[in-house]
Computed example of a mutant assay.
Amino acid sequence: MNAVSLGPLVLAADRFAVVLGLFVFMIVTGIMSRRVDPRFNVWSWWAFLGGLAAARLGHVLLHLQSFQAEPLRVFALWQGGFYWPTGAAAVVVSLFLVLTGARQRLWALLPLALAVIVWNTSWQLTGGTRPLAVPERAFETLAGASYRLGERDGIPRVVNLWATWCPPCRREMPMMAELAADTEGVAFVFANQGEGKQAVRRYLASAGLSLETILIDPFSELSRFYGAPGLPATLFIDAEGILRHAHLGEISREVLQSNIERLATR
């Protein structure tokens, strides 16, 4: 799965690439502030915070209708959701607001270029999704029926790997349940990992949730099969039963919807 494990810390590959690029940017600008011009220290923070805020604002404006219903979700940065063209524009503006000379602006291209190179290289090395076919075995549902992910019914699937003890799983579950009920042409499958029916029923009753297809995977076989190093993980499987994309960690409504749209157009 497109994720990077650093001891107990697990990051999705795209987020790891961004963090690594930002780390290189801050290190290089720190060195330049001591050896070239102290203004690079101030500029690095303007570029970092201003770029981050502008990228988030751009994403919110692109999906304004979604955020109007849940305005506090604007601050849920851990879900992801950044529009990098507006972030890049803010970085360019910071060049002219903080660095007043042409020489300083030319120097500023060095940490920016290095950060982009490191980000791109890291993403290319860790960000791919292997197109795995679904496992052939059947899983038991919460209702006691037998369910095969590889049913040849021509319907793509969104498979959510989750557990009742997992806080981000619990946070995203109501939104996913809502989309599952409202989305046509895509089957949602909620595969509980490592727990029994009683724990799942208890959680659903306390949360007031109703989900159509819940698989009981007491030995976390799906997590091992797909190489998911943590929970939650959301798998996007096409109509032929092939994994096309995997998202590790809490997923936002916008990212979920965009990946569903890609599945529907394959």
Rank of each mutant, 00 (worst) to 15 (best):
A12G: 07
G196L: 06
A76K: 14
D153T: 05
L72Q: 07
L204I: 08
F188E: 02
L11N: 09
R253G: 09
E172R: 04
L110E: 00
A264T: 15
M1E: 05
A108R: 11
G21P: 05
C166L: 03
L231S: 08
W119I: 03
L215Q: 09
T86I: 13
T164Q: 04
L49F: 15
C166K: 06
W165R: 04
F75M: 09
R244P: 13
S33C: 01
R170V: 04
R130T: 15
A13E: 02
R73N: 07
A53G: 10
I27L: 12
E261C: 00
F139T: 09
L209Y: 09
R244G: 14
D37V: 05
R262T: 05
G150H: 09
G7M: 02
S5R: 13
G154M: 07
L9K: 04
F48T: 06
F225I: 01
W46F: 03
M32E: 02
L114M: 10
P218G: 10
N120D: 12
D182F: 08
L243T: 07
E140K: 12
A12Y: 07
L132F: 15
A181D: 06
P8K: 12
A12T: 00
L49K: 09
R15G: 07
R148M: 08
V98I: 10
A53K: 11
G196M: 10
A181P: 00
L20A: 12
T141F: 08
V98Y: 03
A133K: 15
E140I: 11
P111C: 01
R15N: 08
L211Q: 08
E70N: 13
G194V: 09
I260A: 02
G150A: 06
V186K: 10
G51T: 03
S220H: 07
R34H: 02
A69Q: 14
L57W: 06
R73S: 11
F40V: 02
L209E: 09
R35Y: 01
A239F: 10
Q68L: 10
M26C: 08
A187D: 13
A69H: 15
G154F: 08
M32S: 00
G50R: 15
Y226P: 00
F225N: 06
G101N: 11
F188V: 01
G227N: 13
M32F: 03
T129P: 15
S258E: 15
E151G: 12
K197Q: 11
P156F: 02
C166I: 06
L61Y: 05
A108E: 04
P8H: 13
G185T: 14
V98G: 02
Q79Y: 12
F16V: 02
A76I: 08
E70M: 07
